[in-house]
Design a protein around this nucleic acid. Structure first.
Lengths: 221, 221
DNA sequence: TTAAACAGGTGTAAAATTACACCCCTCATC
DNA sequence: GATGAGGGGTGTAATTTTACACCTGTTTAA
């Protein structure tokens, strides 16, 4: 099986062959159905969850009430920022689509961090980058109006799926929660995008017709 | 001289005496006047800046145009998240009040991280916590209306200064930029708070009369 | 010493966003 | 096959926030 390593980091490559074998030899794949809770807020960190396929939503609670924190795509370690701070998850993770998650032993991972300085330095680099992305996501959304925020969200799907046509694994209400606007704002902006010929949409199936225009809206509103 | 170590972290305590002496023996204090740029966006990370006294504003650019990222108080390493990701500062830091900054040698710090696993594990814990605080700041602000956001900002000053009367080192426009609302919204909410007897304010001198009420507004709007 | 420039402040108009009402359609379920 | 829940969709009203206009007083620089 081909394992998808953490996106944008070479930390796993810093491990010696035997270390890598040890780490992934004990790892197992868990399957989650769309809608299932992958990580519950408040639970202790027992393992690291490396997302292989699917999309996951991070949120402050599992009640779907408040704005969600971020979306995670394949190659990301779910809640990595909590693993070495409070050792308890400070937010919940819910599968938006069917997901495969690689479960990595936390104790073993920690032991490798302690014994292999090249690995730990690369891991420091990795979590620094993850958190910059996290901050970036939030800055991008708070600076934008509803049209810009929706354009940003659609762009993220294009980037992570690598194609202009995709099934968006969120309802309109969920999209609203992710970008922090109301369901109606999402629907009206989506209608605008359709009228302007920027996107085609039929329910969850979305096609981006004019990506550069979408990028413009995502930057300038 | 008494050095203020990173807030909420024991990472410096993980160093042996001779390591600590080496790290701080070469360190020097730099003074910044209110308004001065401490770190310019895009510049390479040469040293670590440990804020000793004063308040610093992190922003995406130094033009004062967009919303600022966060405020830093004493005991925080300015831009620590950039030190081990891009190795270039991704945002600017400006002194809001007169500041004293302890300049720590980056190469030396990195060498200690590589040679002392206890130190590097504790540092991983530290940057994880810093980034959680960062995220927390943003969540708190984006979830709130203008009154809640202003209440949150005032609460942060109470917490970090440890007293109910203080000189806020920001103009009303700067306060607006920090919480992401307009100058008029800040002024009107501040006027409301005065009328309700929650705060007293005379220019930059602010006294919190009803802290628990302020907390309520900061949570429920 | 005089005029900008800037900070604090407030009322009102304009814009954006949300909330409400209601529509259609589909898909379970009784 | 009726029913009702849930999703997508849209117009309108209410609310929130911003933008504009304008006033005061203080500081700064010509």
């Amino acid at each position: 099986m081909e394992i998808i390593y953490p996106t944008g980091s070479s930390c796993i490559e810093q491990l010696k062959h035997e270390e890598k074998d040890e780490l992934f030899g004990s790892a197992q794949i868990l399957d989650f159905k769309a809608g299932e809770v992958v990580i519950r807020k408040g639970s202790p960190v027992h393992d690291l969850y490396l997302l292989q396929t699917g999309t996951v939503e991070l949120a402050l609670d599992d009640t779907n009430s408040r704005q969600s924190l971020m979306l995670l795509f394949s190659g990301e370690i779910i809640g990595v920022n909590c693993a070495y701070s409070t050792m308890h998850y400070r937010f919940s993770a819910r599968a938006l689509s069917d997901c495969q998650v690689l479960i990595i032993n936390y104790q073993l991972f920690t032991r490798l961090l302690e014994s292999n300085p090249r690995f730990s330095m690369s891991f420091i680099q990795y979590i620094s980058m993850v958190n910059e992305n996290f901050l970036n996501w939030h800055m991008k959304l708070t600076e934008r109006n509803s049209a810009g925020a929706l354009a940003f969200l659609l762009s993220e799907f294009v980037k992570n799926y690598g194609q202009n046509t995709f099934e968006i694994p969120l309802t309109r209400s969920e999209m609203a929660r992710v970008i922090g606007f109301s369901k109606e704002s999402v629907l009206k902006n989506l209608a605008d995008f359709r009228k302007q010929g920027i996107v085609e949409s039929d329910g969850k199936k979305i096609t981006i017709l004019d990506y550069s225009r979408l990028q413009d809206i995502s930057v300038y509103g």
